[in-house]
Design a binder for these strands. Sequence first.
DNA 1: CTGAAAGCGCTAACAG
DNA 2: CTGTTAGCGCTTTCAG
Lengths: 334, 334
Amino acid sequence: MKITLAEIAKKANVSKMTVSRVLGGKGPIAVETRRRVMRIIDDMGYHPNLIARSLASRRSMILGVIIPWKEQLLLDNYVAQVLSGVMDSARNHHYRILLCPVEITRDDEKQYLNIARTRLLDGMILVQTKTDDPNIDALADTGFPFVLVNQRRYSRPCNFVDSQNIKGARTAVRHLHGLGRREIACVAGSMDESNGRDRLLGYRRAMKELGLPVREDRIVYGDFDQETAYRESLRLFEGGRRPTAVFCSDDYMAIGVVKRIQDLGLRVPGDVAVVGFDDIEAALYVQPALTTIRQPMVELGRTSIDILLDLIDGKQKSPVRRLLPTELVRRDSA
Amino acid sequence: MKITLAEIAKKANVSKMTVSRVLGGKGPIAVETRRRVMRIIDDMGYHPNLIARSLASRRSMILGVIIPWKEQLLLDNYVAQVLSGVMDSARNHHYRILLCPVEITRDDEKQYLNIARTRLLDGMILVQTKTDDPNIDALADTGFPFVLVNQRRYSRPCNFVDSQNIKGARTAVRHLHGLGRREIACVAGSMDESNGRDRLLGYRRAMKELGLPVREDRIVYGDFDQETAYRESLRLFEGGRRPTAVFCSDDYMAIGVVKRIQDLGLRVPGDVAVVGFDDIEAALYVQPALTTIRQPMVELGRTSIDILLDLIDGKQKSPVRRLLPTELVRRDSA
DNA sequence: CTGAAAGCGCTAACAG
DNA sequence: CTGTTAGCGCTTTCAG
């Protein structure tokens, strides 16, 4: 259980360096030597101490995933899917994933930086950050490799991968328009996240392109939350002419809105058509099944790792920016 | 960015050891010295290199979570919830979580062991292992601290935390009986997992207790999978007298069974009542909302970490065994 | 209460 | 192709 490289070296009558080379598979080794050392390694059941290796080589082969902490974090379908993609790609490249839940507070702007400074990680993926998160700036100043997922930063060039949110939102609105709906409302997500902003932007643009007026009283803010969307969306149906369609910036809100509409005695999609965004698992289970703009969340995770590793290996230079395409998924709600 | 403890020591005119003590908060330090050193640490923005610390102290403050690898791993609601609990408790105890997806193969029985031998981890949580997984034995032989979640091992005493599966299944069957149903079928889960076995056992016991015959043609095996359950459950409804109720060993299968029943032109719960197990997120969204036996998945994760840390600190001795209570959640399907 | 010495187990860099 | 020499940055252990 506590065999070290030195013991293998002694047993094989070679230097530690030779054993190290055999293990690394790099440098030049005589076939015969390699075989002999290998045998002893197997016989003794030796496995290198990765901590020691990391200290000496300054490479831990560990990547961190920073996620804003909340209870039952992984019940957030977006986070779960992105992380699945992250694990998949990391595995393929023989990297390990360390989970770093972080509680964002006003008084400490260096949390990400401090995690980087532990030297435990070769790079970081940041998920669901806010557009004004000062932690990012502190980190970026150091040159430590990291990639933002779900964040197209405006203030400063950063590596990121995100979906084509503006385009996706336009697709949604155009779809509703194609169904003959003209009174199209919008339930927007959080304005602290770039995709919340972008999807609202896409809605506005599409409306303009289609020659429809953008009425501010047809826009409510749901903060990417089912309950909030349920509560806030009531306003849309109280005025005079009620909307005949609603575009929601994510599926959780869409589910809340559908519930609101049904509770008001109206029908989806008969009276009001609803389109969501993301294509979370629940979109399929809900009644009526949700028509939505699918974003490739697993792929987002995979791509973020691919970019990060290129950055670490110096194969690409910052800033790397990538936008993945979205896709309309037609179901029953619109 | 590359400040070391030695530099702090020099600037403060003390030995490295003193700085180390200040950092650790342990040993005796003069108040004045501590204050001075602290100031310098803050001023210089020093953060200890955790790799070096781990190597020297033989403690990484990292715990591993072993999960059988599959695509989109975290879309499995059970895994997601357990992991959420794990993260929560680990955070509270200042431990970090390393994800270790593992592909179980026949030819390597030492995968868990090999992960332990990297010395990267202070302990391990094993999720969703099979009852006959030989990797566990190899690991147990070494005394390395680990806790099984979702696994009540029969063959050998291990630390574990699981739900009261037998009791939960009995509650489900009794509930159906209480609704006046007498023809109660069972869709069992995988027989390779102890909870699949236990829930079937609970079904059998409850039937016997209620004076109902246990008919083997009323039991099908769905492998904890929605599609499989949909396919296999057809058999239940083909014979003569069809069941008026079905107990399913998990919610994914229950969803498949409900779909099967509806596709046959029957109604849930009118013609056939259905009870699931787990209370996954989708149970709420599905139509009709699923009546189910809730197991405390997040709590399972939290408890596993608590046990593991006690083990590591020597506060408890193996084997620690804990069973958490389940609870009937009445919704619309039964 | 503080310090000195001695590693933890491995790899980088250079020599041969 | 292989070995030697120096660490990586911290903690342990034992003195003082």
